[in-house]
Design a protein around this nucleic acid. Sequence first.
DNA 1: GCAATGACGCTCT
DNA 2: CAGAGCGCCATTG
Length: 125
Amino acid sequence: MTKASTSYERIYATVRKIPRGRVTTYGTVARLSGLVGQARLVGYALSALRDGTSLPWHRVINAQGRLSLERVASSAGLTQRIRLDREGVKVDAGGRVSLARYGWRLANAPSERTRTQAAGDSRVT
DNA sequence: GCAATGACGCTCT
DNA sequence: CAGAGCGCCATTG
């Protein structure tokens, strides 16, 4: 690891808290890590991981309920699928997971939409 | 120090 | 349900 440290550690710590047999999105991890709206950093941190990691990174998927590794066509994508299936998480043929069923969420977390709305959204309630 | 990249999210079409 | 557009920001070259 070159530097990173704090930000990465936060993300890793959050990922470790993900209960087995459940999946969560990068956005959720980012929020719980204090990086509201910075889901990218989560993916970036996980990309820095390597083989032999004790982190359940396979439980972290994107908000679309898809395995992000499929997106980058990585060989690890298959590994993620196998691991999830082994935990009881059914993955669709297209690499999709039912977030409504396995999605892990917390109540006490800031909403990232707040930021998005203030950015350039005009349809206020 | 600047420019480009990225395991993403959300809304609209 | 799928695709396209826009935003946010740290890491890397």
